[in-house]
Amino acid sequence: MQDDEDKLKQLNQKIEAAKSKNQLDNHSNIPPSQLGKVMKLTVEIVAAVGIGVGIGILLDNFFNTRPLFIIIFFLLGSCAGILNVFRVAKSMQNH
């Protein structure tokens, strides 16, 4: 009986040790590859410009003011793209 309890205690200690080790591992995520980083930044900028132009086309069709809103939202989309890239790059630096 005493033997069993000792074993149980040892097991508990092992579990605790494994748990604390696991918590440390959580913060070290898989490092992104160089190509992945480049892909991410490119997609961010292209998607933002694309969405900006898309909104512009929709608004122009709605108000019949082509090409006014396309131009405005293309510029806004470019700004959003640069903002996105800036934010992603910032979060990459912090990691």
Partner: peptide, 25 residues
């Protein structure tokens, strides 16, 4: 008037970049 549309576009970009990344890979 400038910042709010930019932030909204930036917010709308999220699903596009998320889906394109998986598909392209």
């Amino acid at each position: 008037p400038i910042i709010i549309p930019i932030e909204i576009i930036s917010y709308l970009t999220k699903p596009v970049s998320l889906s394109v990344r998986l598909m392209a890979n």
